[in-house]
Nucleic acid binder design. Sequence first.
DNA 1: GTCTATACGTGGATAGAC
DNA 2: GTCTATCCACGTATAGAC
Lengths: 198, 198
Amino acid sequence: MAKESADVTRQRILHQCLPLFAAAGFDGVSMRQVATATGLTTAALYYHFPDKEQLFLAVVEDCFSQRVTPLMPGPKSPGDDPWAHLEAFVSAFVSLLVRVPSFQRLMQWVALDRDETRARQMTERVFEPFFLGVADLLPVTLGEEERHALTVSVMGLMVFPFETQVARQWLPGYKPPSQVSTQLVQHILKLLKAGVTG
Amino acid sequence: MAKESADVTRQRILHQCLPLFAAAGFDGVSMRQVATATGLTTAALYYHFPDKEQLFLAVVEDCFSQRVTPLMPGPKSPGDDPWAHLEAFVSAFVSLLVRVPSFQRLMQWVALDRDETRARQMTERVFEPFFLGVADLLPVTLGEEERHALTVSVMGLMVFPFETQVARQWLPGYKPPSQVSTQLVQHILKLLKAGVTG
DNA sequence: GTCTATACGTGGATAGAC
DNA sequence: GTCTATCCACGTATAGAC
């Protein structure tokens, strides 16, 4: 491996160890595994990142900002169909969860992290803009707490089917979300528009 | 510590290390920590459980079966309000998530486990009866796949607000689920009955 | 049943050569 | 920038006494 610029190597490390952390989480991946996956030694890794935690945070932040930011919809215009923006976003986000399983798994790991500092950092840099973007897609008439609750519900309806794939695979009526993503989007929108009874 | 029967000690271990595994997951807890928490030595732990994995599985299974089984509602009668059973169950389950945070966190950790054997075991012994019980609460007219999708949605609406507590705590409109559990239940039921526009 | 003592691997991290 | 070599703490797990 010829020497390459620090920036390039750093980015390469980030991309190549993403699947590892997505699969096994922070505690489940060793620096030696990361080294093997990137074709470097642990010593070289420590040249690019001060410690394992900073490496992990960099991986998460890189993945989130690259994937989520481009998804956020533009501002609403007054004349628009109030549902059109929401449907477009739900569709795009579900599509992301299907296309990039590592992203979805990483979200799950991050949600379990109870460290105050890391949680705050993650919220500010990636979760907050995402959350507020979704909240903006909802009807303007909602109060603050109602809007918050509904935002959580919309996110849960999109994410939870992916989080529970492994556990559901032997249950009646199961199809992998990747194979029924269109139906999933329609299911969510029907529920939001009119509830169970349609 | 006087000697006690193996059964009693075993049960005590299960209860005392539940909060540890709930907080940090399988990889985040060492046998030495479990030993400290239970007032035993690691050697004594290995007298009661063959290895760490079996200990963890026993903790999960004990917690789930103790908490979830008593929650499952009885069979529906023809004359009942179709929503009453569902509301009672949602209310009881949300109440469980509030009362026993360890249970909720353990669910999250288990959902991330990708080991086929463990996943299959967990599904058969605890998740399947739960899932089918929720599915039974839904309208009889639904097709199999539609029923499955809706079951996932109902579970997601209940669980996701708890899973995302840490990340949401600084966002506008946030109140801890434990302080707004009644509103959460009403929010979920309103959504299921009639969608966003109520 | 529980202890003390310990084997032995693997973890994160660093020093210093090139 | 990347390597080889290494330190040392901590992980799981066991042997054998009581």
